[in-house]
């Protein structure tokens, strides 16, 4: 009897805590959706549940003549996708070499990667800025992409190496016996088995440039070249609060597709991190 009462109390308390948490989690997100539907411009007049909701801010963002928003969106997608492709290729090569071959410099290489992944590459932001300036890559997307890809390599190489180490070496050895070359073993035997970790690396290197603010802010100078992070920040920072509803609409349009994509692949994220992370 008291056991049952205990259970009811425990579950009720749990539900109360969970509901409170869900409220805290969802409130800011609902609030920004509400703000984006306000007819006014500024933060001061915006309400979470506007009396006469409107889509004018969305229309404004989609108007290429008035706003650069679509351009930023396009820039961000272009940068993220290119970074993703280049990262996956270079990480797969590097991780495979470190996992499967014993060569001079391997140990030092691994150690270097380990240390490099601890220091975010934007710590050297002066250097990146000056170097980009010197090479004429300032305010270009290609410069930004190269910095992103380079920054992705150390951490993702460790992640992927950890996973490749778990694929039995007997597989490639027997393939070698059968006369398969290096590239054949890589492309036809190991990579198909490494699909889960390839997906994780791809997702990481897609998401990271989207969330990055500091490097894009340093390297991109003209408004036409901005990514979403820099563009939206400028929108808010220029005159704080005065264009808040436009920012809110822009934020919603970024958050929803990314969140959906993320929720779809969330399982891989977790399994990839625990597989590669705890081992490597």
């Amino acid at each position: 009897m008291s056991n049952k009462q205990n259970k009811i109390i425990r579950l009720t308390l749990s539900y109360i805590v969970i509901l409170a948490m869900i409220f805290i989690v969802v409130y800011p997100l609902l609030w920004v959706i509400g703000s984006s539907l306000n007819p006014g411009q500024s933060l001061s007049g915006s309400k979470m549940f506007p009396e006469n909701p409107t889509l004018i801010h969305y229309q404004f963002l989609f108007d290429l003549e008035k706003s650069n928003y679509l351009l930023w969106y396009w820039n961000s997608m272009k940068i993220s996708i290119t970074t993703m492709i280049l990262s996956v290729i270079s990480v797969a090569f590097t991780a495979y070499a470190f996992s499967r071959y014993r060569f001079i410099g391997r140990k030092n290489g691994l150690m270097t990667f380990l240390i490099l992944q601890m220091i975010p590459n934007f710590a050297a932001l002066i250097a990146i800025f000056v170097l980009a300036n010197r090479t004429g890559l300032l305010d270009t997307h290609i410069g930004l992409i190269l910095v992103y890809v380079g920054g992705q390599i150390p951490m993702n190489t460790w992640l992927m190496k950890g996973y490749l180490d778990t694929i039995p070496k007997e597989l490639d050895e027997s393939a070698k016996m059968d006369g398969a070359g290096h590239f054949r073993i890589f492309f036809q035997i190991v990579m198909p088995l490494a699909k889960p970790i390839l997906a994780v690396v791809a997702l990481f290197s897609f998401i990271a440039p989207l969330g990055d603010f500091i490097l894009a802010r340093i390297l991109l100078r003209s408004e036409k070249n901005f990514t979403l992070a820099v563009g939206l920040y400028e929108l808010v920072a220029k005159q704080f609060g005065n264009e808040f509803t436009k920012f809110a609409a822009g934020a919603v349009l970024v958050a929803i597709p990314i969140a959906l994509l993320f929720l779809m692949f969330q399982k891989y994220f977790v399994s990839g991190l625990t597989a590669g992370g705890t081992k490597g």
Binding site: I89, S90, V91, F93, T94, Y96, A97, F98, R100, Y101, F103, R106, G109, L116, N121, I128, L131, L146, V147, V149, G150, G151, I153, P154, T157, H182
Partner: peptide, 17 residues
């Protein structure tokens, strides 16, 4: 072969990191 494979990543690493 292993050097060939790490070369692209390594070069990028040298210049941006």
């Amino acid at each position: 072969f292993p050097y060939l494979m790490i070369t692209p990543g390594f070069f990028l690493l040298i210049f941006v990191v």
